[in-house]
């Protein structure tokens, strides 16, 4: 067993884990963060995508021990504390960018990551940027539309004067809370 400490969606968790435990299994089975799902075993489908240290990773291809000391954001931690949806979540809803919804948590997290790097992507850049996430229902058409819309919303939000946070600043997270498990 190896002792790790990770902060997930603003909450700190200290746990002893087997080194072989995948981050996604740690999230789902130990921490109850079942919003993140497993869709394959070869790092292709991207359903398990989360942000680790602010960047998208496939949590089925990360050992929990590799996440030690890092901040993880899952789809469950994306909305504001008042329940206000993240612009990407809102755009997915508005544009009917999901059907069965299984790929959606990973797809949304990938889109969030893409827009953090490229706030104004072309359709081709969106398609390229989401190449690591498979969806079987939508044909991606509405996903591309949604990401384009979200980008516009986020750019408009970023250019507004206060109270919007500066673009570089990380989203405000609740203060870490100790949770033993």
């Amino acid at each position: 067993m190896t002792r790790i400490s990770i902060t997930v969606d603003g909450v700190r968790y200290d746990d002893d884990v087997q080194p072989r435990t995948l981050l996604v299994h740690h999230l789902r089975e130990r921490l109850g963060k079942v919003g993140t799902v497993v869709g394959c075993d070869t790092s292709n489908c991207g359903s398990c995508t989360v942000l680790m240290g602010g960047e998208s990773v496939k949590s089925c291809t990360v050992l929990a021990v590799q996440a030690d000391g890092l901040e993880i954001t899952t789809v469950e931690g994306l909305a504001g504390s008042d329940g206000e949806l993240h612009p990407v979540q809102q755009a997915f809803h508005d544009r009917h960018a999901l059907q069965c919804g299984f790929c959606t948590p990973g797809m949304i997290m990938s889109a969030v990551d893409l827009l953090a790097e490229n706030p104004d992507p072309t359709d081709a850049e969106i398609r390229e940027g989401l190449e690591g996430n498979l969806c079987r229902c939508t044909g991606y058409q509405n996903i591309v539309r949604a990401v384009r819309d979200a980008a516009a919303t986020m750019r408009a939000g970023a250019s507004e004067p206060a109270p919007a946070a500066p673009e570089e600043a990380p989203a405000p997270a609740p203060a870490p809370v100790e949770v033993g498990s």
């Binding site: 079942v34 919003g35 899952t74 789809v75 469950e76 919804g101």
Partner: peptide, 10 residues
């Protein structure tokens, strides 16, 4: 359906 699917409450 989307409300739960886009927030991980599925």
């Amino acid at each position: 359906e989307d409300a739960r699917l886009i927030t991980g409450r599925t």
